[in-house]
Design a protein around this nucleic acid. Structure first.
Lengths: 192, 192
DNA sequence: CGTCTCGTTGAGAGTTTTCAATGTAAGTGG
DNA sequence: CCACTTACATTGAAAACTCTCAACGAGACG
């Protein structure tokens, strides 16, 4: 059951009764998507927050030259949306698309507010989620400023070998901020 | 009164009685620092969270070549710490230092936990703070991946002209991820 | 006045991108 | 199951971007 993924995740941070958890889960809709389906369009109002129970999402934008640039991936147990646009109920700056066949729990902005009002403990859950995500984003910025693109790739591959296998190389390149061609070159250099 | 800065900030997100606010503020210590004082050392356990009521802090690290790299600034009404290290009570990856003479409210990790336990509404406050900060970090990553360093500088200067005046140029360069020399060159190029 | 910090300049070197071409694997329809 | 098409990965050369290093200049401050 796909909802149990979220329930288990919440349980790792909060102590809640089974009744409460059952009520909480009702705030969410469950959807299945196949690979390369779009869940959020840039320019549209961002009124959904997504939780991945299976599969993989990417948050990306199109730069001025028409290239797709990935800002964030989300795999099992990750939350994803354009958080600034979601919070302010503004137009999104990003697209969200499935990278694999995926199962996604969805909550609208108004339901999200209701959920937080009715279960204040969930404020704590999301506070921890965002506190962690923000810390991780600062670490990512640290990496970007510390290392050459070559080093960024090798370190990422060492830290997340499974994930590197999981996504196509051009998406990984787009996420790490280099061109697919240069990523190819780097890999070849290391072999010799 | 420096504590009122935090009180006002909390009021913009929560409705709390004056008594509650008075109790909340007791969890914090107030300190004055002059320019270039260190508040957090990399390698030490990170057990404090900071709120700037006046002045400016920087979160930075030293790269393998010995260069200081700024990951984040915090001015009035900003929270700052090494959030990953704070949350897990681990060794910090960053230094924190004053950029100007500053007044800082400080809360230890244990007091922070007590505060959140005693005033669950504060979970909501911090949830919003971190949700915003995370969204902003993703936007920063978007900028880094979208634009050349030259463009990043001009856009930052257009968006935050006052801040650009406020901090020395070498710190700004370190924050934007380019060298002071290159920043000089960019500025000169635009004049002609 | 001397010193220290910060900003500027210029040349050369290193990194990364662009572009165009080729190779390869995988999916699709007959 | 094969032929076709498409999507993705690789290669190499040239160009663009950004850094390094060393030197100089200007202002702040004791």
């Amino acid at each position: 059951m796909t909802e149990s993924t979220l329930i288990n995740h919440i349980k790792t941070y909060l102590t809640l009764s089974e009744e409460e958890l059952a009520e909480i889960i009702l705030f969410f809709d469950c959807h299945s998507y196949s690979k390369k389906e779009t869940l959020l369009l840039a320019g549209r109002r961002c009124y959904k927050l997504f939780f991945v129970t299976k599969g993989c999402l990417q948050l990306y934008f199109i730069d001025s030259l028409g290239n797709q640039k990935t800002s964030q991936f989300a795999i099992e147990n990750w939350w994803l949306t354009d958080f600034l646009a979601f919070q302010n109920q503004k137009q999104s700056n990003f697209y969200i698309e499935t990278v694999e066949d995926s199962q996604i729990l969805t909550i609208s902005f108004s339901k999200y507010q209701e959920l937080l009002d009715k279960f204040p403990k969930m404020e704590k859950y999301f506070r921890i989620i965002y506190e962690t995500a923000y810390g991780a984003a600062l670490m990512r910025l640290k990496y970007i400023n510390s290392f050459s693109k070559e080093e960024i790739f090798f370190r990422f591959r060492d830290n997340f070998p499974d994930f590197v296998q999981r996504v196509p190389q051009y998406l990984l390149a787009s996420f790490l901020g280099l061109t697919p061609e240069y990523l190819s070159e780097i890999k070849r250099k290391q072999l010799s």
